[in-house]
Design a protein around this nucleic acid. Structure first.
Lengths: 346, 346
DNA sequence: ATCAATTGCGCAATCGTTTGTGCAATTAGA
DNA sequence: TCTAATTGCACAAACGATTGCGCAATTGAT
C-alpha cells in the first residue's frame, strides 16, 4: 500500500548510476563535473517521472542550513502581525524559503523556548517581534550564527538590526492633534509596559503635553497590555472616575485596546466624540466603518514583510560583511470623526 | 568568536563516554540500559551545564519524523484562520509539536507545492483548509503516510477526516430570518465558487427560498471569492441595478466580503438596515461595534484548534487503527440591528 | 608505440542522531 | 577454581543528502 519514498539511493539502484552523479546532475552541476549529455537527460527525465524531490531534512543536516526562516510574533490573530506574516511568507516562497511560525503570546519564556527550538531546526535566520524586555537570548542567538531581524520593537543600546514604526512621531502627532482641538486632559491607554513600542508612544504622548505646557498626570496613564480586555477594563474604570479626572479624550496605543474601549462605551452608552474623543494607533480595514469612524495612526506598510525578509536574506548571504541599516517606517495620522473640537466653546 | 555547537559527539569527547551512552541517558533510557547512577548524573549535569539540546534535523533524519505538523490556510490575515492557527499552535506546543505555516492564497498550485514541501520536511501530519476544488494530491498524501485533517472545507465523496462548520444550517437559518422579516428579494454574495463552504451556504440559501416558495433567481447570486474586493465590486453593481432587481436584503458569505459591502454602501450613502438589510457569515469581535451592529452567523469556535490538533494526533498515534469521526460544528445566528422588518408595512 | 591529458563517473566521508548488537569486566553459583 | 550470569558500556550501521578526491578508460600528441 505505502509506496516507498523515492530517494537518491533508489534512483541510483534503478538507473545503475551512482548516487553522487545523480545528486550532482539534479543540482545542476552536471556540466561542471563533465557528466555526459545522455546521462544527464536520462537522470533528469526519470527523476521527473518518478517524481523525485529531495528530503529537506537530510539536505539540512548535510548542508547545515535549512532554507527555512523562523518567524516569532506575539499574536498571529493581531491583524498587524498577520499581514506581516503573510508578506514574509509570500516573499519567502519566491526565494525558496519556508516559514516556521511561533506565537510567543507576549511571554518571554515562550519566546526563549522558540528561539532555541528554531536554532535546533537550523533555521537560516529569524524574524522576531520580540517581547522587548530582555535581549540576552537574542544577542546570543545572533552571535552564535543565526541572523536576526527585529520587527516592530527594538532594544535601545543593543546592536541588533531592526525595522520599526516611528512610534514616537506617531504618538506625538496624534496627541498634538487632540491638543489642537482643545483637549488638555488626555487619558493614555497603554500596551505592554517597557516594550520599545510602548515606551516610544508614551514618550510621544509626554512630549506633546510638554510642548503645549500641559502637566503630565501619571494617573491618566493606564493599561497593562495590547489586548482587548486591557482596553475594556481601563475604559470602565475611566468612566467611573470621569468627574474627578475630567478626561475629555483618549489616546489608545493599539487596535485591540480600542475595541475594548468601544465595547465598554457601547455598554455604558458613551458616545464618541460627543462624550469623549478618541485617537488610536493601528489603522484597520474597518476603522472607517465603525459607529464612529476613528481617527487613527496608520503604520501598516504593505511591503513590510518584503522589507524584513530582504533584510534577513541580506544578512544570510553577505556573511557579516556589513551591518544592515535599520529602518524606521513613517506613520500617518488619518483624521476622521472621533475627535470633538472643544475650541468653539470658548 | 562563534562558539561551537555542543553535540553528542562533543559531549562524548569532553566526558570520555561514548555517544550512544550519552544519547540513551538523555533520552531517559539510562536505567533500561543499566547505565550506572554516577554516569547518568554526570551526563545529565554536564549536558545541562553546557546547555545541550539536540539537533532536530539530525533527529528527524534518523527517526523519520519531525515532531512538526504542517498547517495550510488560504489566508492568515483572515481572523478566522488566524484564530485557528493560534489555537493549533498553543495546543501543539503542549504536545511538543511545532507548526510549519503555509498560506495557499486560495491558489491550488501553491497548495500542491506546499503539500510536497511539507512532506519533504517529514511533517508528522498536516492540517489543511483546502482550496476545495481538487483532492487528488491530498488523497495521495494521506495514502503515502502523512495523516491529514481537513478543516473548514471538505470533499463530498472523499474519505478524508474533516472538521467543518454547519454551513448549510447556518445559511438556512440566516435566510429564514430574512424571510421572516418580510424579505423576498435576497441577494446572495458568495465566496470562492465550488468550494464546499460555498456550496453548502448556497444550498442553505436556496433551501430557505424553496421552503418559503420564493423563486430562485440566479441573477441575485454574485461574487467570486471571499475577499474584500469581491464584496465591494458586487455591492456597487447591486446598487446600480437596484430598481430593476428590487433587492431588499443581502446574505453575505464572509466577513471580508461584508466589509467590502459596507465600504461601498458608505461611499454611496446607503444605510443599513433602512435602505438594505444585511445578514453575514463570520462573527467578528467588532461586528457589534460597526455603524450598524450586524446580525451574523457565528461559527467561530474557541477550541477549534484543539479539536483539529487532537484529531490529527490521534491519527498519528493510532496508526490507522480506526477512522476518526468527522466533526460538524454548530453555528449560531446572532441577531442585531442590520435587518429591517418589512412586515409592519402592510 | 608510449606517455600525458582529458573524459566520465564512482568511492567514501560527513552532518548529528538513534539503536541493535557485542564484548570485557565483575559478580554469583557450584 | 571454573563456569555462568550479570553489569556497564562501546561499536558501528543507518537515515538521505552533498562533495573532495581518485581512478579507469578514452583521446591526443610525439
Amino acid at each position: 500500500m505505502k509506496e516507498k519514498k523515492v530517494t537518491l539511493k533508489s534512483l541510483s539502484h534503478s538507473l545503475g548510476i551512482s548516487v553522487s552523479t545523480i545528486s550532482r546532475v539534479l543540482n545542476g552541476l552536471g556540466e561542471e563535473y563533465r557528466i555526459s549529455k545522455e546521462t544527464i537527460s536520462l537522470i533528469t527525465t526519470t527523476a521527473n517521472k518518478l517524481n523525485y524531490s529531495p528530503n529537506n531534512i537530510a539536505k539540512g543536516l548535510r548542508l547545515k542550513r535549512s532554507s527555512t526562516i523562523g518567524l516569532i510574533v506575539p499574536d498571529i490573530t493581531n491583524t498587524w502581525f498577520a499581514h506581516l506574516a503573510l508578506g514574509i511568507e509570500n516573499q519567502a516562497r519566491k526565494h525558496n524559503y519556508n516559514i516556521f511560525l511561533c506565537n510567543s503570546n507576549d511571554d518571554i519564556k515562550v519566546e526563549k523556548k522558540s528561539i532555541t527550538l528554531l536554532k535546533n531546526w537550523m533555521v537560516d535566520g529569524i524574524i522576531i517581534a520580540p517581547i522587548g524586555i530582555e535581549a540576552e537570548h537574542l544577542i546570543k542567538a545572533s552571535k552564535t550564527g543565526t541572523p536576526l531581524v527585529l520587527i516592530d520593537r527594538f532594544f535601545e543600546g543593543v546592536d541588533l538590526p531592526y525595522i520599526v514604526s516611528n512610534d514616537f512621531e506617531g504618538a506625538l502627532e496624534a496627541n498634538q492633534y487632540l491638543i489642537n482641538n482643545g483637549h488638555k486632559r488626555i487619558a493614555c491607554f497603554q500596551g505592554l509596559v517597557d516594550t520599545s513600542t510602548n515606551n516610544q508612544r508614551l514618550s510621544g504622548y509626554k512630549k506633546a503635553l510638554k510642548t503645549n505646557k500641559i502637566p503630565f498626570d501619571t494617573e491618566l496613564v493606564t493599561g497593562s497590555d495590547f489586548g482587548f480586555n486591557s482596553g475594556y477594563i481601563c475604559a470602565k474604570k475611566l468612566l467611573k472616575n470621569l468627574a474627578k479626572t475630567k478626561v475629555t479624550a483618549i489616546f489608545s496605543m493599539g487596535n485591540q485596546i480600542t475595541l475594548g474601549i468601544l465595547k465598554a462605551f457601547k455598554e455604558e452608552g458613551i458616545k464618541i466624540p460627543e462624550d469623549i474623543s478618541l485617537v488610536t494607533f493601528d489603522e484597520q480595514i474597518y476603522s472607517d466603518l465603525l459607529l464612529t469612524p476613528l481617527s487613527t495612526v496608520s503604520h501598516m506598510n504593505e511591503n513590510l514583510g518584503d522589507l524584513a525578509l530582504k533584510m534577513l536574506l541580506d544578512q544570510i548571504d553577505m556573511n557579516d560583511t556589513k551591518k544592515p541599516k535599520n529602518v524606521i517606517l513613517k506613520s500617518e495620522l488619518i483624521i476622521r470623526e472621533s475627535v470633538k473640537n472643544l475650541m468653539h466653546k470658548k
